[in-house]
Design a protein around this nucleic acid. Structure first.
Lengths: 154, 154
DNA sequence: TCTATATAGTTTCTACAGGAACTATTTAAA
DNA sequence: TTTAAATAGTTCCTGTAGAAACTATATAGA
């Protein structure tokens, strides 16, 4: 049985996402994780959210999230604000510059996938979802299962 | 339609592979890409191969491959040898230390997946493969399609 | 109150990953 | 033969990713 093939395909998918990310970064100055972060802020109340909230949404490590926010901050797309009440919490706020960028950024991988996947039969889409679910379960992502998927992705 | 969910699942799979890789690295001192590299050498003639050959098999950038080999070399698991004939080519050779490590390294993600996937119905496995294939095609990994998959993975 | 302990983030370190620029060698062409 | 182009690798730079160690703040318990 060819699990090697499956692993190679997963590696290919990963790689294509990375390549797309670098392409987007070159064109717009922001990578996919950065875009996802800005995207989340745009959907948040007052365009603001705590680092932890973002971290949970992106399903990333705190240090990774910190780095992403650092790069966004350097570009002026995001600002770190103090939170009254709990001074441990750093509120991340979308700047108008960040908002403008998001407005002008067209079709990401996300939307490309959406478009192309839309052309597939419903049955095929269901199979893709089931297959990925199976892989997720098989690979044993138990500790992560709890993370709250905020479905307000789009 | 929920492509967001699909992307999140792919990210989860990627993440679980990374986590597994770090776990393996902590336990055995070598990561999955490094193991794949050693694995390839073990299946090569005289336990040797050119960097380019490895690069094509792993489907990675030259600089990335260079880094992986560097780390393996530092650990003494691999050695860089000159190739008579073409002095641009660097032959990568598995050392006995590397060979021994591979002999003693049990059940990788690879084999875990194999084991767990073996318990699934053939139909499910087929669906997984088809789904990944579909995603690979949708994500447009055209330039990479040509890379020669040596099926001697196991 | 004083002390755990838990929580929120940051910093440092390491690995993977790719692009760009570079060196060195080989091959093709003029 | 000398130049031009292709090929094989390396080095440098940046980004993603996580673990470990750390700071600072908040909360619970004695």
């Amino acid at each position: 049985m060819d699990t090697t093939e499956i692993l190679i395909k997963i590696r290919k998918i990963v790689r294509s996402i990375n390549l797309e990310s670098k392409k987007i970064e070159k064109e717009y100055g922001v990578s996919i994780p950065q875009v996802l972060c800005l995207h989340y802020l745009r959907d948040s109340v007052n365009f603001q959210a705590g680092q932890g909230e973002i971290r949970k949404f992106l399903n990333l490590n705190a240090s990774t999230t910190s780095g992403i926010i650092n790069r966004l901050e350097t570009k002026g797309l995001v600002a770190r604000l103090p939170k009254s009440g709990d001074r441990r919490v750093v509120t991340i706020a979308l700047t108008s510059k960040g908002d403008t960028l998001m407005t002008n950024m067209p079709s990401l991988l996300h939307e490309k996938l959406e478009e192309k996947l839309g052309k597939q039969e419903d049955q095929a889409i269901l199979e893709v979802q089931n297959s990925l679910e199976l892989l997720v379960n098989i690979l044993g992502i138990d500790e992560l299962e709890a993370f709250p998927v905020i479905p307000e992705g789009e």
